[in-house]
Design a protein around this nucleic acid. Structure first.
Lengths: 226, 226
DNA sequence: AAGTCTAACCAATTCTTGATTGGTTGCGCA
DNA sequence: TGCGCAACCAATCAAGAATTGGTTAGACTT
């Protein structure tokens, strides 16, 4: 019984001796057995104790590392897109973009608003669906730029990239349909007007309504496809 | 001179014959030479024309693919961190995390809430500042996980990574200060309670208040450092 | 009879090595 | 000069070997 804890104390001594930066890999179990002169079973018991204590973590094929197990962090756009679905993307837009619109209403400059209006004019004059989408994307990004916050802009770009990657396989029928009385025109105008009038709630609400309609269209298109 | 364009027309004919889904890889240049009976130099000229035309794209070691080259769109955390400042990061948290908390109140399961409570207990028992920060991070991430939305989780992770990168160089005096009556304890409890009671507004408000206090502390620490 | 050591095996992961592929250069030839 | 041909280069991929934590079975000790 004493030897069981003996392995743990020996391991602790070994780790204390060479001061341990977090996330450093320590030698494989079989080597540690030789070093500490302990059987693998006892060593594994000691390691299990320390692991459940959060002092280190192990993974098959990788090894044993100091510190707490790192959480899975998603930063890769393709990786995110593979793990998610249009619903979650749309939900995220509904939650986040209205907030950014509020911030834009707070910080937008005259130049920002001028560019928004220019985008709106261009979107009305667009002849193809592709052109319209470009104008629409540009308008939305201009709104985010108007918040004058690099972090928000980066998050928006990431969200946008995921959106494009996810919707990729959905809409291939974007041939030669020019939108005429698209609902977005009035909604965009309301959004820009609210931003211009520094109406935070109005801007957030306008963005929320606009995205809700976009969501409705998405669902409708999806049902029509089935 | 005619043969130079002859290779291009032959290539075009070959591609037109088998109708081409985008992002499909076509045979390597050496094979195409045999197939079309054209020298590699001429073939490469034709490929260069089509590539500059945006009809296909090539990459060493990968191959030649139909369609436009996929955009990079990598959200480089280090790049964002270099271009921003703690204020913008904090502002983004204030705008986004309360919204995610609302979504968590809507979708949290019993397991999610149990883990949140476990994090809170651990954070109170934490002996070192480092341990407390781990618990705090874990709690916040659990809240985001409770939203059950991969996109929101990914955005939060990105934001978090930027935050760590930005604040990294700021606070190095985190030696042996164990927090006792930290303001966060009560705020965390209010947040988790609101989520448990499916109180969307309450959850959002609790998160907002909590982050506001965090921001105040940040500003105070910064002023104290100057 | 319970515990422990040893050895072997398993599955996940990493490392290594060879082959593939677009890009480039030099030589021969007309 | 211009074209074809061959060889070479660096980036990438692919398949197999080696590594590593996790598990099991049997012999041995107490």
């Amino acid at each position: 019984m004493d030897q069981g804890q003996g392995a743990l104390t020996q391991l602790r001594a070994y780790l204390a001796q060479r001061d341990l930066p977090t996330n450093t890999r320590l030698p494989p179990e079989r080597e540690l057995c030789d070093i500490l002169g302990v059987s693998r079973g006892e060593l594994r018991k000691a390691l299990a104790v320390m692991e459940s204590n959060g002092e280190l973590w192990r993974h098959v094929g990788k090894g044993t590392f100091m510190g707490a197990r790192p959480a899975k962090e998603y930063s890769d756009v393709a990786g995110i897109a593979a793990l998610t679905n249009p619903r979650d993307v749309m939900r995220a837009r509904l939650l986040i973009e209205p907030q950014i619109a509020r911030e834009a209403a707070l910080n937008a400059t005259a130049e920002d608003i001028a560019e928004m209006k220019q985008c709106m004019v261009a979107s009305v004059q667009a002849q193809t669906w592709r052109q319209y989408e470009n104008c629409d994307n540009r308008l939305h990004r201009t709104v985010v730029e108007a918040a004058h916050n690099t972090v928000l802009l980066a998050l928006f770009d990431t969200l946008n990239a995921v959106r494009r990657a996810v919707v990729w396989g959905r809409l291939r029928n974007e041939s030669v349909r020019p939108p005429k009385d698209h609902h977005s025109f009035a909604e965009h105008e309301a959004l820009v007007r609210a931003i211009e009038e520094r109406d935070l709630d109005g801007a957030g609400l306008a963005m929320l309504r606009h995205l809700s309609h976009v969501q409705d269209n998405l669902l409708a298109a999806r049902q029509a496809a089935e």
